[in-house]
């Protein structure tokens, strides 16, 4: 199995396992799923140290985008806690 295949397969297994486990516990919060996906993505990308530099650059960009999404999720959650209008 090539390095890229192992990387994609690892992420696929992690994402699926996370979804199944959280579904078993009947979690309905999308932000929780997204946060765990982001953590798994960052950890896996860090552990696959021998990815090509160009692939790593592109994956880092992807990480920034995902982190941006995570920031939006956190901001919305904070807005809900603070009781801002339109976020309840």
């Amino acid at each position: 199995m090539t390095l890229y295949n192992r990387y994609v397969a690892t992420l696929a297994v992690l994402f699926t396992s996370t979804t199944v486990v959280l579904a078993v516990y009947n979690q309905q919060r999308l932000d929780l799923y997204f946060s765990l996906y982001l953590i798994e993505y960052l950890a896996s990308t860090l552990l696959f140290v021998y990815l090509k530099p160009r692939a790593r650059r592109l994956l880092n960009m992807m990480g920034y985008v995902l982190f941006g999404g995570f920031t939006v999720v956190v901001a919305m959650r904070m807005g809900q806690i603070l009781g801002l209008p339109g976020l309840r």
């Binding site: 994609v8 696929a12 994402f15 699926t16 959280l22 919060r29 799923y33 996906y37 993505y41």
Partner: peptide, 14 residues
């Protein structure tokens, strides 16, 4: 059903 929505999101990320 949010777990299925999350599975879709995971597919988009992958």
């Amino acid at each position: 059903y949010m777990p299925l929505v999350a599975l879709g999101v995971a597919s988009v990320i992958l």
